[in-house]
Amino acid sequence: MASQGTKRSYEQMETDGERQNATEIRASVGKMIDGIGRFYIQMCTELKLSDYEGRLIQNSLTIERMVLSAFDERRNKYLEEHPSAGKDPKKTGGPIYKRVDRKWMRELVLYDKEEIRRIWRQANNGDDATAGLTHMMIWHSNLNDTTYQRTRALVRTGMDPRMCSLMQGSTLPRRSGAAGAAVKGVGTMVMELIRMIKRGINDRNFWRGENGRKTRSAYERMCNILKGKFQTAAQRAMMDQVRESRNPGNAEIEDLIFLARSALILRGSVAHKSCLPACVYGPAVASGYDFEKEGYSLVGIDPFKLLQNSQVYSLIRPNENPAHKSQLVWMACNSAAFEDLRVLSFIRGTKVSPRGKLSTRGVQIASNENMDAMESSTLELRSRYWAIRTRSGGNTNQQRASAGQISVQPAFSVQRNLPFDKPTIMAAFTGNTEGRTSDMRAEIIRMMEGAKPEEMSFQGRGVFELSDERAANPIVPSFDMSNEGSYFFGDNAEEYDN
């Protein structure tokens, strides 16, 4: 993207840094990872977990959730003011799984939030270390993106479920800051804005008074975040219109849905970061690795190297396929839920299948599930090659597409044709070009129609051997075009429920 120079890199967003050079960025990201790792080690000690239990991804998720809940100030305040039966607002906890007599047992633990905050700050040299908290939120978000298709949420806001490739980060909490905003897809931002506008339509006082002023500035800020994701002048001009509207209503909703559809071809720039579970960072720190000293990046080879040398386990339900569970977590670790499966298959070195073909449910185990038949197995999170994460949407291309997802959002900077089903997408653009945004709409449609099938995206960008740390010898991959490109292809993934 041309304006790259004016933006802070995501590592800076990730670490609240002012302008830093590459070495400083690597050190501050490393410091953040160190903090998460030290916190995780301490929690495993508190909970008396064995090494194996500490490497269980379900335990990692519970521990991450506990610290996120302990620092969720708004919710904590709300819980104190609106006490609900049987919930102690000062405590947080969740299921911890232990191996007892050759069987997995679930144990519900409860801790004072104050105590968890103390352990977290102690692991982070006394700081609140917001960057580390956001990092864990993005890992949870990436896992949700890989596990669930947001059909219901899309339909509720009037969008087409086939636009799911635009929904990265749709389950990120509001408090995820600049680093969170960077990884949100165009569809996620559109959905947040539509929800806001709908509230304004239904509630006369939404934009009024002292609160209304705050609401208005939040609305304009979200519009600017979305505008910054678009790469064409016409899309940005249309966002200006939406932002400046005196009284946002149905016309703005129409414009936003139009823009979301246009992003299936004229893709937005959305950041991709490899955020790993805390149970990967903990053992690495415990083994003596100093992330701050060595430096770390979320968008280069580092996460690949770390996963190459990590042992992570997962509980497996009786009829689940461990290899499929591994694929789910591998995609989440690489922030690749909406990437082209052919690119992923090449990088991973084994075939990556669409969601609907995987015999696996989510990673988390519900409290009512029976533990008797639970097994555990090693997650295979290694890769054959590594590639640089991208934040450009890439230019655009036609490809055989599917009944489910009709476009992709690249996660890796790797040369390819970008699949999208042009006739299906263009069919949504018939007729409606009147109104105050008509010239911009016409211009956007013209650009979409001009998108050429034979153009290559990320020209000359390749993948790298894991021994090639400096990215000196790019390998331009070859793809098996007979395979499906979309992950949520004609899909039956479970729906995400809060």
Results as ranks from 00 to 15, higher is better:
G94I: 11
F464S: 04
Y313M: 04
I63P: 12
M371F: 02
Q231H: 14
Q231L: 14
S376L: 03
D101P: 14
P322E: 02
M1E: 11
C333W: 06
G268L: 01
V155N: 07
Y52C: 06
L143C: 13
E380T: 02
Y78F: 15
Q398E: 00
R389S: 05
E320H: 06
A271M: 12
G435F: 07
R26M: 12
V280K: 11
M137I: 13
T6E: 00
G200P: 04
G394R: 09
E252S: 02
Y97I: 07
Q399K: 15
M238I: 12
V270G: 08
A85E: 03
Y219K: 04
S141Y: 08
I253V: 11
G295E: 12
F489T: 12
T171Y: 00
L358H: 11
Q231G: 13
R99N: 12
M13G: 07
R121Y: 14
D497S: 14
G485Q: 03
T157D: 03
L79W: 04
T188G: 08
V186D: 01
L256C: 15
R199S: 06
P419F: 04
Q364E: 03
C223D: 09
G86W: 01
F206H: 10
E107M: 07
A451C: 00
K91W: 03
K7M: 01
R99T: 12
R243P: 01
S345N: 11
L418V: 15
G180D: 10
F346M: 15
D16T: 13
K227T: 10
S359C: 12
D302R: 07
I25C: 00
L358Q: 05
A179Q: 06
E210N: 11
P474M: 09
L110I: 15
F346R: 04
Q235K: 13
L381N: 13
T188E: 12
Q308S: 03
V109H: 03
D302V: 05
K325H: 09
A218R: 01
G356M: 11
D497F: 10
A263T: 15
G209N: 13
T390N: 12
N250M: 13
D439L: 01
Q58T: 07
A179L: 05
L315K: 08
M196W: 04
L328G: 04
I365N: 10
M137F: 09
P283Y: 03
R102H: 14
S392K: 08
Q308I: 15
P354H: 07
L466H: 15
M66C: 11
R19K: 14
S359N: 12
N144T: 08
L79E: 05
R391W: 09
C275M: 07
S262P: 04
D34W: 01
F412Y: 13
I388T: 09
R267G: 05
G209E: 07
V476T: 05
Q308K: 03
D439F: 01
F429N: 01
R99C: 09
N250R: 03
M239I: 12
K103Q: 04
E494W: 00
A179R: 01
W386E: 06
E465Y: 00
K7G: 00
L226E: 11
L259M: 13
T15H: 14
K7V: 02
F258T: 02
G37D: 08
G485F: 15
T146I: 03
Y296V: 07
P419L: 12
S383W: 01
I445M: 04
R436V: 03
S28T: 02
G177Y: 03
H135T: 04
F488T: 00
A403M: 01
S407V: 01
R391L: 05
L68K: 07
T424W: 08
C333Y: 09
I253L: 11
A278K: 05
L358N: 08
I201C: 12
L108V: 12
A234Y: 03
H324F: 04
L193A: 10
M447K: 10
F420K: 00
Y10L: 14
G462D: 01
A153W: 03
H140K: 04
G185H: 12
R55L: 13
L133C: 05
R416D: 00
K229W: 09
S69Y: 07
D145Y: 09
A278F: 08
S28C: 12
G460M: 14
S310R: 00
N250G: 11
T130G: 01
M456T: 04
T188V: 03
E192L: 06
E14K: 14
P248N: 03
R74Q: 12
D203G: 04
N309C: 01
P95T: 05
S359I: 12
L341C: 11
C44P: 02
T146L: 02
G431L: 14
F464L: 05
I194L: 13
G180A: 07
C164I: 12
R156N: 02
V408S: 11
K48Y: 01
R99K: 15
Q42G: 13
H82G: 00
E495H: 07
K273E: 10
Q122N: 04
M448A: 06
M374P: 02
P354E: 03
E449V: 11
S482I: 12
S262W: 06
L49A: 13
K7D: 00
A153V: 11
I33R: 00
C333M: 15
P477H: 04
V299H: 04
R162P: 10
I265Y: 00
E114G: 05
G431Y: 15
H135N: 10
L226T: 10
A271K: 12
L315Q: 06
M137L: 09
M163Q: 04
R174Q: 03
A286T: 09
F429I: 04
A179D: 02
G431V: 11
A27Y: 04
N321P: 00
E320T: 10
G126R: 12
V190W: 00
L259T: 02
M163C: 14
K31E: 14
G393T: 02
R461I: 01
L298S: 11
E465V: 07
Y10D: 11
I301T: 04
I194Q: 10
K77S: 12
T360K: 05
M448N: 05
E443S: 09
A387W: 04
K48P: 06
S376K: 09
G180N: 03
T390D: 05
H272A: 06
K227C: 09
P419H: 10
G93N: 04
W120I: 07
R199N: 02
T171F: 05
G349T: 08
K98L: 13
G177S: 06
I225W: 08
V100M: 14
E495P: 10
K305R: 15
R102I: 03
M136E: 06
T171I: 08
A27V: 14
Y313P: 07
M66K: 11
L379W: 02
M374Y: 10
E494R: 04
M189C: 15
S170W: 10
E80I: 13
A401N: 13
A373H: 11
A233L: 12
V67E: 12
R441D: 07
R436Q: 01
S50Y: 01
M13W: 03
N417D: 05
A181D: 08
S69F: 05
P322W: 03
P410M: 12
M32W: 04
N473C: 12
V463R: 04
G394I: 12
G17T: 09
G404A: 15
L79V: 12
E455A: 11
H324C: 01
G86N: 15
A451G: 15
P318M: 11
G349Y: 06
A403V: 09
P95E: 14
N395W: 00
K48R: 09
A442F: 00
E244F: 01
S326L: 10
F258K: 09
S413F: 08
K98N: 13
T130R: 12
R38Q: 12
L379M: 15
T147Y: 05
R382G: 09
R416H: 14
D302F: 04
M1P: 10
T350F: 14
L79F: 07
Q149W: 07
K227Y: 08
M191T: 05
R261G: 08
F412D: 00
N483G: 00
S326M: 11
Q405W: 11
N124E: 10
P89T: 03
D88M: 03
R156G: 08
N250I: 09
M331C: 07
D439K: 01
M371L: 15
R208Y: 05
E24Q: 15
V414T: 15
N370W: 05
D372G: 09
M43S: 04
A85Q: 14
A278R: 02
T134R: 02
P283E: 00
D421R: 02
W330C: 08
T232I: 12
